[in-house]
Simulated scan of single mutants.
Amino acid sequence: MSNQHLLGDPPIPLTLRRSARARRISLRVSALDGRVTVTLPERLRTEAALEFASEKEDWIRKHLARQPAQVQVGIDTLLPVDGTQRRVVAATGRRVELGPDTIAVPPAALHRSLERYLRELARDRLAEASDFYAARLGRSYARITLRDTRSRWGSCTSDGGLMYSWRLILAPPDVLRYVAAHEVAHLAEMNHSPAFWNHVHRLFGNYEPARNWLRSHGGELHRFRFDGPERSGE
């Protein structure tokens, strides 16, 4: 891969990806983070790919304009936790506390404390769901890893390792459980064949609503940022 830019106001970063299987140039704008990827045949000149992207500039900018606006999380931010909108408020103690419609966070280390809490909550929910579906499938997994992935919500390695995006804790519970069922099903089928989807259906039931929710709204979970400046505490 190589990085280039499409000139304009503002400039658009481009990721050029060469593929031995590509027969023509293709263009993709990620619904998760707005990354623009141009895939081209291995022997094609870089200039040809840049010309192609330039011709599609209006199309690219229209897609980028639809990307959800970034939200720097802070006091009074509305944050979906378990799919329920909760307002971030200042905690009176030193612990993060989840309420029916609020999430109280110590202001002195708001971003660090809140992200750590959400990751721990995601691990608990995903471990519980993975255990449930693995038992139903009659297979065991090796480990669970959480990351802040942009290209996928989960994955399963050949040795049984499950990886999930911790941002699934911001989605409705059924969506989180669907992703867990999806990845656990890969313990039996390391593909997306009809047999694989039969496993997902047997484990989870009708998965289409949750799958469609991720396609339509998954990108919104990546608009929340937890990297703001921290206040000095007492």
Rank of each mutant, 00 (worst) to 15 (best):
residue 233 G to H: 05
residue 16 L to F: 06
residue 8 G to V: 13
residue 145 T to M: 08
residue 40 L to A: 04
residue 100 P to Q: 11
residue 141 Y to E: 01
residue 54 S to F: 09
residue 172 P to M: 02
residue 206 N to P: 07
residue 31 A to C: 07
residue 124 D to K: 14
residue 146 L to G: 00
residue 129 A to S: 04
residue 13 P to L: 05
residue 72 Q to K: 14
residue 80 P to N: 13
residue 101 D to L: 08
residue 19 S to L: 05
residue 133 Y to G: 08
residue 127 A to I: 11
residue 106 P to E: 00
residue 190 M to S: 09
residue 225 R to D: 01
residue 28 R to C: 11
residue 87 R to Y: 13
residue 17 R to Q: 04
residue 150 R to P: 02
residue 211 R to P: 08
residue 202 R to V: 09
residue 113 S to P: 09
residue 141 Y to H: 01
residue 46 T to M: 10
residue 180 A to R: 05
residue 101 D to H: 14
residue 154 G to S: 08
residue 15 T to R: 15
residue 91 A to C: 00
residue 49 A to L: 05
residue 65 A to P: 05
residue 213 W to K: 02
residue 7 L to R: 12
residue 29 V to F: 14
residue 71 V to N: 07
residue 173 P to V: 06
residue 14 L to Q: 01
residue 79 L to V: 03
residue 55 E to A: 13
residue 75 I to G: 07
residue 226 F to C: 02
residue 158 S to R: 14
residue 216 S to R: 11
residue 140 S to E: 02
residue 225 R to S: 13
residue 186 H to Q: 05
residue 39 T to H: 01
residue 102 T to K: 09
residue 54 S to P: 09
residue 181 A to R: 06
residue 228 G to L: 05
residue 205 G to V: 07
residue 173 P to W: 03
residue 143 R to F: 11
residue 19 S to T: 06
residue 231 R to V: 15
residue 58 D to V: 15
residue 220 E to N: 09
residue 92 T to R: 15
residue 9 D to E: 15
residue 11 P to T: 10
residue 122 A to Q: 00
residue 234 E to F: 13
residue 226 F to D: 00
residue 193 S to R: 09
residue 6 L to Q: 06
residue 234 E to K: 12
residue 233 G to P: 08
residue 163 M to L: 15
residue 139 R to D: 00
residue 189 E to D: 04
residue 214 L to D: 00
residue 178 Y to C: 03
residue 118 L to C: 13
residue 43 R to P: 08
residue 94 R to E: 12
residue 13 P to Y: 03
residue 34 G to Q: 08
residue 34 G to T: 03
residue 106 P to G: 02
residue 183 E to A: 02
residue 142 A to V: 03
residue 234 E to L: 15
residue 46 T to F: 08
residue 140 S to C: 07
residue 151 S to P: 01
residue 1 M to H: 12
residue 216 S to P: 01
residue 63 H to Y: 09
residue 116 R to Y: 06
residue 28 R to G: 07
residue 62 K to N: 12
residue 10 P to D: 07
residue 135 A to P: 06
residue 64 L to Q: 03
residue 43 R to G: 07
residue 171 A to P: 13
residue 5 H to F: 14
residue 148 D to T: 03
residue 119 R to A: 08
residue 5 H to L: 14
residue 160 G to D: 01
residue 12 I to S: 06
residue 48 A to W: 07
residue 103 I to M: 04
